[in-house]
């Protein structure tokens, strides 16, 4: 009896404890982890409910694109996945969100732990005002990794994964602000990858970048997707079509009702043969 209770507790903590699951991509590849399940999710800022009734699955090791007109709550929904909404104040999240079966909004979950598993890349590149090396090392250091060789290896891996290693390997001590906008954004991706997350959230990661940098980011996403679950918000339909496996279309039909999910499904199917009229008109650019 006692034993089973203990085991149950360990199992509950397991996703955060590292037992039975490696954070290393190569080893973890055969395990299925990093999948979200959303049930009746709603979000309210103060008294205003901006999202309601969202049900969807985010499959592991695939790219899910969130699309929809400006202001429909894509960023808001994205911030639910790593509980960044907690930091905004006066935000309430309803419904259930589970990560590999674990309710991430339950009391015993420390959002800080959650965020080590679920990384985020922001719309504008936001490197810290410090060296390239220190930027990428920030997450691992937060996790208590201090050994130089260990850090070096993690940083090289992360920068390689973000396709930035070749460009910066000889300038790791350079200040991050000396990089170009596109390089800065890839640095931010590397920084997020260095914590070995299972999920990477990206909020319009290429919208502030030129076409070539955008291409590089898209290539990076393609490289990463068989190792890490990616949820990306984008306004660019071609981009969604190119890089995502699954697409979710959100819409807020009027300002006095919350946004909802119109359609979720396989990207190819949605872009060729959408089920919903509204999806079709949005994709073909008739509104939004």
């Amino acid at each position: 009896m006692v034993m089973s209770a203990v085991l149950e507790e360990v199992a509950m903590e397991a996703p955060f404890s590292g037992t039975g699951r490696s954070r290393t991509y190569a080893e973890g590849a055969e395990e299925i982890s990093g999948s979200f399940s959303l049930t009746d999710v709603s979000v309210a800022y103060g008294n205003e409910t901006v999202i309601a009734g969202v049900d969807m699955l985010v499959p592991s090791r695939a790219v899910t694109a969130l699309i929809g007109p400006s202001g429909c709550g894509k960023s808001t929904l994205l911030r639910c996945f790593n509980r960044m909404n907690d930091e905004i104040g006066n935000v309430r999240v309803g419904g259930t969100i589970t990560l590999d079966g674990l309710d991430i909004y339950q009391k015993s979950i420390d959002p800080v732990d959650l965020r080590m598993r679920v990384g985020q890349v922001f719309q504008r590149p936001n490197p810290f005002p410090m060296s390239i090396y220190d930027n990428v090392a920030f997450g691992p250091r937060t996790q208590g990794i201090r050994k130089r060789e260990e850090l070096d290896a993690i940083i090289e891996d992360a920068l390689r994964d973000a396709a930035l290693w070749e460009e910066v390997q000889n300038h790791l001590k350079k200040h991050a602000f000396e990089l170009s906008g596109g390089q800065q954004q890839r640095l931010c991706i590397a920084r997020a990858l260095a914590t070995r997350p299972e999920v990477l959230l990206m909020d319009e990661p290429a919208s502030a970048l030129d076409p070539i940098s955008t291409q590089q980011i898209e290539d990076t996403i393609a490289e990463l997707k068989d190792r890490v679950t990616i949820v990306i918000v984008t306004h660019n339909m071609q981009q969604a079509a190119r890089i995502s496996d699954q697409t979710a279309f959100m819409l807020r039909e009027s300002m006095d009702q919350p946004a909802h999910l119109v359609e979720v499904g396989d990207t190819k199917r949605m872009f060729t043969n959408p089920n919903d009229k509204r999806t079709e008109s949005y994709i073909t650019g008739r509104f939004g």
Binding site: M84, E87, D113, G119, F122, F128, F138, T142, T195
Partner: peptide, 22 residues
């Protein structure tokens, strides 16, 4: 900018670590 705080928090830093280090 708030961006920097959020980036640090999103990496799993606690509130204080984000303030102190970034």
């Amino acid at each position: 900018p708030t961006d920097l705080r959020q980036a640090a928090l999103a990496l799993g830093a606690t509130r204080w670590r984000a303030i102190y280090k970034v």
